[in-house]
Design a protein around this nucleic acid. Structure first.
Length: 418
RNA sequence: CGGGGUGUGGCUCAGUUGGCUAGAGCACCGCGUUUGGGACGCGGGGGUCGUCGGUUCGAGUCCGACCACCCCGACCA
């Protein structure tokens, strides 16, 4: 992509209404546009990051057998009444009436709808187990939005639902989901902690994937075992320990931290299938309610979390993890467009994602914007570099001049081992 | 939903005890000079001060209601 044609603008100043690092960065760098409190439009750069996050999530969910579908935003009142959630969840629903007076809700979650689909299709234990997921916009009328894209009223989420004939069968999939989730977060460049938590209205307990950082809304107690082998972690809402206690698992010391809940998994048992009469016939011909699990990952929240972790506020500098960077390579021409253009074409021919700054601006301005955009690899073609018949390559704070002919080789070398 | 704060060109802000054609920087347009860290000069365009109502000879400035945004709390599938 030529930067002269890219739909984006950066800002020199932090937006006055930004409530968080992630929002102020994403707006400043031209990744998103704030539409209203809790709702952000994704601009080309932001959308590229989101699409990459989505694809990582898809790949990992597919690995454990998840199948993707797409459900609906409009959900009728009758569906919610089957589980008594129309009245009880009133505050968080965006309720509306259509011109015929039909009462609807903008989907905040999809347990009811997936159960409705499954009870219509699946009737036998032979159909089980299976897991279905979607990536879709969720609408939640949060009483108070905050933390930029970390808690919005309209946001992207991956939600997966598993169906099993028994708790034993359910547990098999539940346990497969955990490493799949860790794979996702690792590829996003995030270190997540598996944390025991309350199940809210779903179930007594659940597991959350928490990224430990002070901007998080949750409070986590975890074992700071020096051997790094203990994985004890509990959300404050259910914690039986406090800071400084001995870890009940290994005897290490309990530490406290804030955390961003970037994913969660719940065992639902028959909480939804039973009231909705979603049943199958077991081997003995007996009617049984499906045993369910649900598995969420906040897609927009993941992007915001990566910003919180990777954005350097004091330097106005971002470096996106390689797998989700809007472009892998940022090629910057300092008044050497003839040479730069050749390299740009070559990179594109070799399927390397490259953003090419071909604009007629001062070097400082280009660098400042490049710092904000945050591509992991930067190539600079300048009079200085061309005198050595080369290109300046910077990656992970290492800068070196390499011959133009070696650029492809060098980029491939650096990508090995990832 | 309770408490608090803020609202002035696209952005960030200034605007004195109410007073004369409402300002700056950035951004934008034109010309020129620049070109390794958001460069400089000259010349331009753009706001009726969140909205509505009130007080006053006169309101960006005072009062009221409403709206929006932000903060604290409650809430958070």
């Amino acid at each position: 992509m030529k930067q002269s044609e890219l739909f984006f603008k950066t800002r020199k100043e932090v937006p006055a209404d930004a409530d968080s690092i992630n929002a102020s960065y994403l707006v400043r760098a031209g990744f998103v546009h704030k539409h209203m409190a809790g709702a952000y439009a994704l601009l080309p750069l932001g959308l590229r990051v989101i699409k990459k996050i989505e694809n990582i999530v898809r790949e990992e969910m597919n690995v454990i057998g998840g199948q993707e579908i797409l459900m609906n935003v409009l959900q009728p009142r009758e569906l919610w009444e089957e589980t008594d959630r129309w009245e009880s969840a009133v505050d968080i629903f965006y309720k509306l009436k259509d011109s015929r007076g039909k009462e609807l809700n903008l989907a905040p979650t999809h347990e009811e709808e997936i159960v409705d689909i499954v009870r219509d299709m699946m009737k036998s234990y032979k159909d089980l187990p299976f897991a279905i997921y979607q990536i879709q916009t969720k609408f939640r009328n949060e009483p108070r939005v905050k933390s930029g894209l970390l808690r919005g009223r309209e946001f992207l989420m991956k939600d997966m639902y598993s169906f099993a004939e028994s708790n034993e069968q359910h547990q098999i999939f539940y346990k497969k989901a955990i490493p799949a989730y860790f794979s996702v977060f690792k590829r996003l460049g995030l270190e997540a902690k598996l944390t025991e938590a309350s199940g809210g209205i779903f179930s007594k307990y659940s597991h959350e994937f928490q990224v430990l950082t002070e901007v998080g809304e949750d409070t986590i107690f975890y074992c700071d075992s020096p051997t790094d082998e203990c994985d004890f972690a509990q959300n404050k809402e259910i914690a039986e320990v406090k800071e400084g206690d001995k870890c009940p698992k290994c005897g290490g010391t309990i530490k406290m931290s804030r955390g961003i809940e970037i994913g969660n998994i719940f065992s639902l048992k028959d909480k939804f299938s039973k009231p909705m009469k979603a049943t199958f016939l077991d081997k003995g011909g007996k009617e049984q309610a499906f045993i369910m699990g649900c598995y969420g990952i906040g897609i927009t929240r993941a992007m915001a979390t990566v910003v919180e972790i990777y954005y350097d506020v004091t330097k106005n500098k971002m470096i996106w993890p390689a797998e989700i960077a809007p472009y892998k390579v940022h090629l910057i021409s300092l008044n050497q467009n003839a040479e730069a253009e050749k390299l740009y074409d070559e990179l594109r021919k070799n399927n390397i994602e490259v953003l090419y700054d071909d604009r007629d601006l001062s070097a400082g301005e280009k660098f400042a914007e490049a710092d904000l955009i945050g591509c992991p690899t930067r190539l600079i073609i300048s009079k200085k570099s061309l005198e050595k018949n080369g290109v300046e390559l910077s990656e992970n704070n290492v800068v070196k001049i390499i011959p133009i002919n070696n650029v492809l080789k060098e980029l491939r070398k650096n990508n090995e081992g990832r």
